[in-house]
Each structure stands twice: as structure tokens, then as C-alpha cells.
Design a protein around this nucleic acid. Structure first.
Length: 847
DNA sequence: TGGTTCGATGATGAG
DNA sequence: CATCGAACCA
């Protein structure tokens, strides 16, 4: 009768039909936990226990959330209730936090248009703050501080709590810094990732009634990957379940791999202590891998203590042995893997998407990427630098973010001189100093103050006029007044562009079109092609992709009813009086920016469309692989020091976590697992001799088979004599020479001749491209920017319009001049790179 | 002031 | 080897 319960094994059935009260599901790898969560959600609805809008399911990654959404939707249409799809809340921890905070931003001293700083931005905030305190700004100081702040936030500690917990001077100093950091973020009207959880906690702690209200709204909670929750998230869950204790958590202590992110395995090990009377169900039947693979995983994880007792089994007995291959170096390792994939593709009924390569660190990806490209196999790298982290994307989004939230200092400083406008460090520092003045509060205000006297913008936005009398005698402001014309012009240009953008956001609906025009107006493409000639093509393509992404987003936003993130929409109207918040483009922009901050993209290795049926080989870190499965998996770089990678040898928990990581990786493979390593590996440019991973040696030999192509004849080559002794001897001598005179390595680098050819082809493409670009990106409304030459000294006017030549920028026309003599600042319009301010003496007048 | 080059230095990893 | 900051040149 109830199709939802068909095809579930007994423990799964028990988990799905357990409706109220705390529930802990210990789900081994591949035991069908997503199945249990999704089926349980549907069962809650169809059994009449819950309404769809009372269900909240939380995951860690967007990938997991997306997959769950798809499966829930499919099940809902099976049971004839597709309309419930949008009512179930299915979210990552961080987007959940963002959504709640949007509603109550004012309680944290933020306004509705707050934005989310990413790690990069966070570093900049810390750096600026350290600098303003005359402290060291080297990367280790920044990292240490950011690690401290993150640690506090992961534990749910606000600055006040951090002070309480400080037991020495160091901690006390850090806590002070943390406090200032938080103040800065508030001033910028921004949050960091940690605040997405901590901020909600602070609100709930102050107003438990509000927490209760949420708890009454979501009466049934489910949490995936519970072993990776940190104390802050755990506290958040306790608030959200305070009214009912209907919390079902799913996890596997053997797959806890985010301790370094503050996750604590104690949450899952001690669940029954906090949630009295919790039902515990173990899912131990594995539906993914062969027995050999499961046994190998068990061999590795057995060495850990303090585990929940469980043992995976499968009815797929036997299976192929695990192949081991040892290469002489990392190049050979990659060649082997790719060759192996090609052979299997030819022999078996597999497609590229059935293969995955897992590595411990991202840096290892490069070799495999090269080999795959060489073999012309399609591949994708999951993780890596996200699309939204790329410089050109961050630049453009920064403009949009500042337009929405001028308090966003980090993004404002990012683009105040992008493209170059003659606003250098000195000028920025003056603005930063002025921003310290009470009553000014932000760099944006400082700019308005600076331009306030003789500057009016005749657009729609009427901004509050600063009141100069308050600060007349302040040094910082005097500095501003003394600013030179060239810099002032640059700042004015920036401000005008920004206001123009804000104005467009108010008056036009198409975000993509607004951005397109803005890019043209600031000559952004010309700027990147002059500043980054080598990567301009890529960057321009990314800019195009950003516009496409926005267009696509707009399409779904306009179609869907309610639009994605509608949960955010309703409250904004009441909580903001600004006219900015009413404009369609502004609303769309805010949702888009949230989405881009919270969603990590994947990047593919080439430009081919994704619609090939056979898909791509997947490359990812072991961390990224959790929750996924592949017919054939390669686990590469199995060497001590790389995997396990031990940073602190006194920390035994670290080795345990590496072991769990290995357990995760091994259990991704369905049919066949291959593990590889290299005897020596280039690291930081020099070679390092390695030994096989201890995890490899933990696996019982009967499950392994060493590929005879290996350069050694034993898996544990530490004691082995070399099989190909001549070759090995040669390697050693190469290496000795390398270390003695440091010049020998060249011979190794003649890897891919075709790359040289590509280079010249690229240069040609590039020339062609920049010509095309100027036209195809043209703004169709005939506006060619602002004329900033109006208030230039009359003496210089005769030079305006002259054609000049500059050694690096080429030929251009003088637009404006300020100052006199050789050191005068001259604004020149270069056709290839847009307007630049240069010093007069470096120009040659050619008529 | 800005652009370029050179040398030092550094690599784990959700959102 | 890639990225980043400092020194230097235009």
C-alpha cells in the first residue's frame, strides 16, 4: 500500500518509520542513508505526521542538498504530491543561517542589504586591522588570527565569551582583536561564513522566544553527515529542536573528516546523552562496493580506537583485487592512471564518468590534468578555485556589491582603482584615515565628504549630505582636502560610475544588461587585456560566463513562483525603507549575490559542452569525494607524509582523522579500486624521496596485487632492492647532480612540445579577440563615458587632444592634464587599455 | 603613480 | 611551480 516503504531493508524500514523523538542513524558508507532521509521525509508527510512545510533537512554541502532535492522531488511525484516540493526546507547549514539572518539583520546591527565576506575578504579585513594597529601583517600572523577567529566561531563563542575563556595574555590579546574584527564587519555591513551560524546563535541566545518560534515552525528536523557538525551547529540544532526534540541525525563516526574545521566527533558519540531516550539504528549493509573493497577499508579503519562498533557487509562477495602501482615519480604515476583508464574504457562497458581520481591535496591535480588532456579524455575538476573566486569575477561582483551595500569596504577598496584611475595606496590610506573619523564611519562616506562640496550627481539617489562642521579641524580630513586633482578626478570617476550603476539598478530590470553596459562603460575588458595579456582571453570568457550565469538566474527567477529564496523576500519589504530594496533588479541582485557566496562551482577542464552522454572523468580531493560513488576509483599519492599528511606529530587525533579520510576514499569505489604512489615526488621544485603510505601496508596482502609495471617488486619498497636497478641508479645520480649544482633539472622539462605551439596560436587568437571585443561588447546606447576634462587648468588646454606615445601603453590621446611641468598628471585615452593617468615626462607628443 | 620584474616563500580541506 | 609582495624603472 505504502510504496514509500517498499524495497527497504529492516533497519532502513525502522529508521524511516520512526517519526517522533530523537533518532540516531549510524549509517556506514554506502548503506543508503540518503535513501533513508528522503524516504523518511516523504513518510512523515504521507503518514499524516507532518505537513511538508514543517520539515527541515540540513546538509553540509550544496552537492548533497541538490541531490537530496532531486530525490525528494522524484518521490513526491511518485506519491502524487509534487506541490509539496517547495514546501520542504532543504538547505545547507550556512544557507539556513543566511536565510534566518536576512530576516533579523537589524538585531545584529546590520541592515537588510548585508553581504557575506569570503575567506579572501576576511584575510583583507584582518590584514587592514593588523596594519592599523601597527602589528605584523605577514601571512602567518594573518593566518593565525583568522584561525583563532574561526575557532571561536566554530565553538559558538562571541567576543565576550572569548574573553571569558582566555586564560593567558595571548588569548586575551586575540580576544580583543576578535572584538575589533567583529566591529569592523558590522561597520562594513558584512558577515563572514562563521557568522552565518554564530550570528543566529547570538540572536537566539538573546531571544529564546524567537528560537521557539522557529522550533514550532519546523517540527521535524533531519541532519545529514552529523559527525561533521561543530559545537556552534550543535547548539543551533538544540535551539531549533527545543520545542519537540524531533531530531533525526544521520552520520558515521568513521567518516568524520572535518575536525580541522572545528567539527567534533563527540556530537555523534555522545548523542544519546543530550537527547535522552534516543533510538539508535545501525545501517551496516553496503550496497555499493565489493567485499574486497569493504575488507580493505575495514583493515585501515580497525586501527582507530573509540569508534562506534559496526561492520559493513555486502552480498556482493568477492570482487577484483585492489591494484597497486608504484611509479618512479608523479608524472609516471599520472601516465599510468590515464593509460589504465583508456584500457578499461576500450575493454569494458564503462564511460568516462564512471572513473574518478582522488588525491589528498589539490596540487596533485595538475599532473593528471595534463595527462588527461594529452590523452584527449574529457575530465572535470571538482572543487579547486571556484568560479566566483576568480579575480575578474570578484572585480565585477565587487562593483555590484558596493552598489547594493556601500559600507562593504573590502569590495570598495578592491575596485576603487580597477581599472586604474590613479588612485594609489597613498590616496586609499587618506580615505581610510578619514573613515576613522566619528560621523564618517566608512570609506564610502569619506568619498562623499570629499566630493561633497563641489559635487552633485543628478541621478535619482539623494544621499545624505555630510556635515563638514563636525570635522573641520581633524587632521585626516585636512589630508583629504589637500588631495591632488588627479586623484580627486579618479575618485570622482569611481563615484560617478558607481552612482550610474546604482541608478541603472533602480531603473532597469535586466541585471545582465545592466552589467553588460557597466562593463563597457568602465572599459573593463580593455583593462584586463592590457594588464593581463597572457590570461586576458580566459578572463574575458569568464566575464562572459558571469553574464550568462546572471541571465540564466534571471530566467529562473522570473519564471518561478515563488522565486528561489522566497523565504528571504517577504521580510525585506517591511524591514527596509530604502527605495533601493523595491527595485526588481536590486532584489534579483541580492538573491544572486547570496547564491554566489554560498554555492561553490565546479570548473571543467575544457570548453566542450557538457551534453556528451558519456560524461567526464572526475578529479577531486578525498574530502570532496565524500558521499559520492564511482565504478572505478583511483586513489593516488599513497605515500607517507602526503597521505597521511601529518602536520603535528604530537597530535594522535590527526592520524586517526587521516585514517578516516582513507576509509572514505576507499569506500567510494564500486567495482574496482587502484591505489598508486611514487617513489619520489617534486615538491616546491625539489625532489623528495618517499615511503609507501602506512595505510597501504595496513591492508592485508591477500586483497592486493602489485602491478608488474611498477618500478619496485614489493608494495613496501622500503626494504626492497630495486627491480630496475640501472634506471634507479641513474635517477639517484641525476638527483645528486641536481642537488649539487642545481641546474640539471632542465632535461626533465621537455614534456609537451605541443604546448610551445599552442602559445603562438594563443597570441594570434588574442589579437583577433581584442579587436572583436571592442565591438561586440559595445554599449548600444551611444554613451562613451564621462568627460572629466572640464575643470582642467586652462593653460594645459592646448595639449588636450594631442596624440602621444607611451613606452608600454602605446599610442593614445590626451584627455586632460592637471599640474604643470614634467611631473604633471595626464589622463590619456589609450584605445587598447582605456583611460590611464600617467606622468607627463613619460609621454612623447607625436601630434 | 603604475607597471614590471625578480626573489622569496609557501600547499589540505565544507560553506 | 605559482603566487605574492618588494624593489625598481618608465
Amino acid at each position: 500500500m505504502n510504496t514509500i516503504l517498499d524495497h527497504l531493508n529492516p533497519p532502513q524500514h525502522q529508521a524511516v518509520t520512526h517519526t517522533t523523538g530523537p533518532l540516531l542513524i549510524l549509517a556506514g558508507a554506502g548503506s543508503g542513508k540518503t535513501r533513508v532521509i528522503t524516504h523518511r521525509a516523504i513518510y512523515l508527510i504521507t503518514s499524516g505526521t507532518a505537513r511538508a512545510d514543517e520539515i527541515l533537512a540540513v546538509t553540509f554541502t550544496n552537492k548533497a542538498a541538490l541531490e537530496m532535492r532531486e530525490r525528494v522531488d522524484a518521490l513526491l511525484s511518485d506519491v502524487g504530491r509534487p506541490e509539496d516540493s517547495t514546501k520542504i526546507t532543504l538547505s545547507t547549514f550556512h544557507s539556513l543561517g543566511a536565510r534566518i539572518l536576512r530576516r533579523h539583520a537589524d538585531r545584529l546591527g546590520l541592515s537588510w542589504n548585508f553581504q557575506i565576506y569570503d575567506d579572501q575578504d576576511q584575510y583583507k579585513v584582518i590584514r587592514n586591522l593588523l596594519q592599523s594597529k601597527d602589528m605584523e601583517t605577514d601571512t602567518t600572523s594573518i593566518r593565525r588570527m583568522s584561525a583563532y577567529i574561526e575557532r571561536m566561531k566554530n565553538r559558538g563563542h562571541s567576543p565576550e565569551k572569548a574573553h571569558e575563556f582566555a586564560h593567558n595574555q595571548q588569548d586575551e590579546d586575540n580576544a580583543w582583536f576578535y572584538e575589533d574584527y567583529q566591529k569592523q564587519l558590522r561597520q562594513d555591513n558584512c558577515l563572514d561564513f562563521g557568522d552565518l551560524i554564530l550570528g543566529v546563535l547570538e540572536i537566539f541566545r538573546k531571544d529564546p522566544e524567537l528560537a521557539s518560534a522557529y522550533s514550532k515552525q519546523w517540527r521535524f528536523l533531519m541532519v545529514d553527515e552529523f559527525q561533521d557538525t561543530n559545537p556552534a551547529q550543535y547548539e543551533l540544532l538544540s535551539y531549533l529542536t527545543s520545542e519537540h526534540n524531533n531530531l533525526a541525525v544521520v552520520g558515521d563516526d568513521d567518516q568524520a573528516i572535518y575536525r580541522w574545521r572545528g567539527a567534533t566527533i563527540a556530537n555523534i558519540l555522545g548523542f544519546e546523552k543530550d537527547y535522552k531516550g534516543a533510538t539508535v539504528i545501525k545501517l551496516e549493509q553496503n550496497y555499493r562496493s565489493t567485499q574486497v573493497i569493504l575488507d580493505a577499508a575495514d583493515d585501515v579503519i580497525q586501527h582507530n580506537s573509540g569508534r562506534r562498533d559496526k561492520k559493513l557487509w555486502t552480498d556482493k562477495t568477492g570482487g577484483e583485487k585492489i591494484s597497486i602501482f608504484t611509479a618512479s615519480d608523479e608524472r609516471e604515476e599520472a601516465q599510468y592512471v590515464v593509460e589504465k583508464i583508456q584500457i578499461m574504457l576500450a575493454r569494458k562497458e564503462l564511460s568516462p564518468s564512471d572513473f574518478a581520481i582522488f588525491f589528498r591535496t589539490n596540487a596533485q591535480a595538475r599532473q593528471f590534468e595534463e595527462q588527461l588532456r594529452f590523452a584527449q579524455l574529457p575530465y572535470q575538476i571538482v572543487g579547486g578555485t571556484s568560479f566566483y573566486q576568480r579575480q575578474e569575477i570578484k572585480d565585477l561582483l565587487a562593483y555590484l556589491k558596493v552598489a547594493l551595500n556601500p559600507g562593504n569596504q573590502i569590495d570598495l577598496l578592491r575596485v576603487i582603482n580597477t581599472p586604474s584611475r590613479g588612485v594609489g595606496d597613498g590616496t586609499v590610506n587618506k580615505l581610510l584615515n578619514a573613515a576613522q573619523v566619528p560621523g564618517i564611519d566608512s570609506v564610502y562616506d569619506a568619498i562623499r565628504f570629499l566630493l561633497g562640496a563641489d559635487f552633485t550627481f543628478d541621478g535619482e539617489l539623494k544621499l545624505i549630505e555630510p556635515n563638514p562642521t563636525d570635522f573641520d579641524h581633524d587632521m585626516s580630513l585636512e589630508e583629504l582636502e589637500k588631495m591632488r586633482t588627479a586623484q580627486l578626478e579618479g575618485i570622482k570617476d569611481f563615484y560617478q560610475n558607481l552612482q550610474h550603476l546604482r541608478d541603472d539598478l533602480l531603473h532597469f530590470e535586466s541585471l545582465a544588461e545592466i552589467l553588460r553596459q557597466f562593463i563597457e562603460r568602465i572599459h573593463y575588458l580593455a583593462y584586463i587585456s592590457s594588464k593581463y595579456p597572457d590570461s586576458a582571453e580566459d578572463k574575458a570568457r569568464n566575464v562572459g560566463e558571469l553574464i550568462n550565469a546572471i541571465e540564466e538566474f534571471e530566467k529562473s527567477y522570473d519564471e518561478e513562483d515563488p522565486p528561489p529564496g522566497s523565504f528571504l523576500e517577504e521580510d525585506l519589504i517591511e524591514s527596509s525603507s530604502s527605495m533601493l530594496s523595491d527595485a526588481t533588479a536590486v532584489r534579483k541582485l541580492r538573491v544572486f549575490l547570496d547564491q554566489s557566496a554560498l554555492i561553490q562551482n565546479t570548473s571543467t577542464g575544457d570548453d566542450e559542452p557538457d551534453d556528451l552522454d558519456n560524461g567526464r572523468v572526475t578529479l577531486m580531493t578525498v574530502h570532496g569525494s565524500k558521499g559520492l560513488e564511482f565504478e572505478v576509483a583511483f586513489l593516488v599519492g599513497m605515500e607517507d607524509d602526503l597521505f597521511p599528511s601529518i602536520r603535528d606529530s604530537t597530535d594522535s587525533e590527526e592520524l586517526a582523522e587521516e585514517r578516516r579520510l582513507a576509509y572514505v576514499a576507499i569506500t567510494r569505489a564500486k567495482q574496482k579500486l587502484t591505489m598508486t604512489n611514487a617513489r619520489r615526488r617534486r615538491i616546491y621544485g625539489s625532489f623528495k624521496e618517499n615511503t609507501p603510505s602506512r595505510f597501504l601496508l595496513d591492508i592485508k596482502p591477500e586483497r592486493l596485487e602489485l602491478d608488474p609495471k611498477s618500478v619496485v617488486n614489493k608494495i613496501d619498497w622500503r626494504t626492497s632492492s630495486k627491480k630496475k636497478s640501472m634506471r634507479a641508479a641513474k635517477e639517484i645520480s641525476d638527483e645528486e647532480r641536481y642537488f649539487s649544482d642545481g641546474q640539471i633539472a632542465d632535461a626533465n622539462f621537455d614534456f609537451d612540445q605541443s604546448m610551445d605551439l599552442d602559445l603562438s596560436a594563443q597570441e594570434q587568437d588574442f589579437d583577433e579577440f581584442s579587436q572583436v571585443a571592442d565591438e561586440s561588447w559595445a554599449y548600444d546606447m551611444d554613451d562613451d563615458g564621462f568627460d572629466v576634462s572640464q575643470d582642467v587648468d586652462d593653460d594645459n588646454n592646448e595639449l588636450v587632444g594631442q596624440t602621444v606615445i607611451h613606452k608600454s601603453l602605446g599610442i593614445g590621446q590626451i584627455k586632460a592634464i592637471s599640474g604643470s611641468g614634467d611631473m604633471a598628471s595626464v589622463t590619456v585615452d589609450f584605445p587598447t587599455s582605456g583611460e590611464k593617468t600617467v606622468i607627463y615626462k613619460f609621454l612623447k607628443i607625436i601630434g
